[in-house]
Write a protein that binds this DNA or RNA. Structure first.
Lengths: 344, 344
DNA sequence: GTGAAAGCGCTAACAG
DNA sequence: CTGTTAGCGCTTTCAC
């Protein structure tokens, strides 16, 4: 049995409420009593029972994280730990704890969320990546529960605060960067368009090309699943085209890894013969040969801002929804190079 | 204001205690009342308030995860999400929630742990990787709080339940595997020996070599930080030795990535000229060229078993401590090859 | 089988 | 400034 506020009160000859006030450092308690009570708390090794407090204050000082992708996506992406780190950093400052969903299936995750929300286990939620046919976001909306989304709301339901990169713009920038280097034959290496991020990036790539009046040769956009064989095959398809690209934009660092490997196997040198750039900076971008130039999406910041937003929302649920865009930035490494002549 | 047990009781014309019993499916309630009460719960959209229940039952049905390494280690390692996934899977089955520490520094993490334990926010804890000068484990031990360690207890403090691989054996096995392939000149590529895992693996490597009476040439053990330049430099040092290795054992997939890249830069073909194997299977091992043969440590299982153990401990804290070893297994891919002649 | 009542440990008026 | 008094929403004897 652990020490309660009453034990402290008794030993310090004060009322429980006084102890409570001391805990909250209420200004209406004399320094003298505060010292006395604190001393007793020390001696007895008192610690607050969070549940009792939560029960009465109707707040838990914890925020829930919905991983809509625990199984596959998190795994395959350095994104997850980093975003958690950002969320954690802010929450720690504000004294919030973190609670994770454990479900693997869509359905299980949904139940986790209901449990968290209805059970008043969390004060707010952060949803990582929403997808189209998603029950969680509509539920949260309907419950009027404070939450923010990292990513972009799928269907245009208003009232959602979300944190995102400007993926279209980022892709445009990255592609422009390649164009600025003199590249005209720029291929795209990416994955399934189910995720908004992915399709946004492809769009940005197209836009950049159009704006520079570069016509896209047939077969330059390669959409494949994250898998080495498909990468090699995509490259082979590119190889039989009249003109092989001088540059590649990959949707993610892991696609860049595949690409780099496939290129090596075909004896194509990076960056001497082709340049490679990708999205999602991560430590591994520095480990490859050559280290790859990436578009940093500032994952940590994404998490940090998201946490900040939920906390604001928790304090004042009526606050206007907003969307914050985390800027992106090109981190130049050694996988790109200027095209000397070879004009279009 | 949300629906409470009283609201349900009133509407169903029963006592609150009856509703409580229905929730727990107590056998002493007639089917008829159960049905009636459940119907009302449905209608009203009743959900249990976890805090109230926690307060009285003195249990929270949540387990805490201590990330002693949120900042650097998790990031650089696909280990983290995967172990969480394993923990989550078991906890989900058992109806436990997950709570994460948010601190970045040793000190902050320690405080998080104290807060979780003393605040009765969690019923048990899982500590990921203990290090030598660690306050968390001694604290937990002293508090007699149910916890398990993923990794190996540093100082020989008894009474700790831990889940681990047999890293020495795994390294021996992996090295033997190389020897079985005919390799005699096997180099080691790894990182700082501060972590037990790392030094254990190095030990296993040595043991295997000794057992096979293979003498280790000077300079074959390369200890470097996870960083491309150092990788290349290590390789260059190896290159000026009288005999270049025919095989490499890397301590982690990320070290293998560096190695593979450096090898490519030096124009050394894998697996034709040298074989490369490493620890910690992960998706990325399939994406490199060639896909690398790894020693799978079954990270998911590590998490799953850890969760199982804390749950057991929570149910019966007096249970004997134990250590469970998760077996390791070589996943053969394409980065290794038999040595044809070239006998020692 | 079911109800009444007494808390779990804390906070928050309301007095004084 | 500090004590008294009600609860927060649930579980759990102990009666009936």
């Amino acid at each position: 049995m652990s020490i309660t506020i009453k034990d402290v009160a008794k030993k310090a000859n004060v009322a429980p409420s006084t102890v409570s006030r001391v805990i909250h450092d209420s200004p209406s308690i004399s320094e003298r009593t505060k010292r006395k009570v604190r001393k007793v708390m020390q001696e007895l090794g008192y610690h607050m029972n969070a549940n009792a407090r939560n029960l009465v204050t109707k707040s838990t000082k914890t925020i829930g994280i919905v991983m809509k992708n625990s199984a596959k996506e998190s795994l395959r992406n350095p994104f997850f730990p980093e975003v958690i780190r950002g969320i954690g950093a802010f929450c720690h400052m504000e004294g919030y704890s973190l609670s994770l969903t454990t479900g693997e299936s869509e359905e299980a995750i949904y139940e986790d969320v209901v449990k968290m929300v209805q059970g008043r286990r969390v004060d707010g939620m952060i949803v990582l990546y929403s997808k189209k046919d998603d029950k969680v976001v509509p539920y949260l909306l309907e419950q009027q529960f404070p939450f923010v989304l990292i990513g972009k709301p799928g269907t245009e339901t208003g009232g959602i605060t979300f944190i995102d990169n400007e993926n279209v713009k980022a892709a445009r920038d990255l592609t422009h960067f390649m164009i600025g280097l003199g590249h005209r034959k720029i291929a795209y290496f990416g994955g399934s368009l189910d995720y908004e991020v992915v399709s946004d990036r492809l769009r940005g790539y197209h836009e950049a090309l159009e704006k520079s009046k570069i016509s896209l040769p047939e077969g330059y956009v390669k959409l494949l699943s994250l898998n080495r064989e498909e990468g090699i095959q995509a490259l082979e398809e590119l190889l039989v085209l009249p003109e092989f690209p001088t540059a590649f934009v990959a949707v993610d660092i892991l696609y860049a890894v595949i690409l780099l490997g496939a290129l090596t196997e075909k004896g194509i040198k990076v960056p001497e013969q082709v340049s490679v750039v990708c999205f999602n900076n991560s430590e591994i971008a520095e480990l490859t040969s050559p280290p790859v130039t990436t578009m940093d999406v500032h994952t940590y910041q994404l998490g940090y801002e998201a946490a900040k937003c939920v906390c604001e929302l928790i304090l004042d649920p009526k606050i206007m929804e907003k969307s914050v865009r985390i800027p992106t930035k090109i981190i130049k490494r050694e996988s790109h190079q200027t095209v000397i002549s070879q004009s279009k």
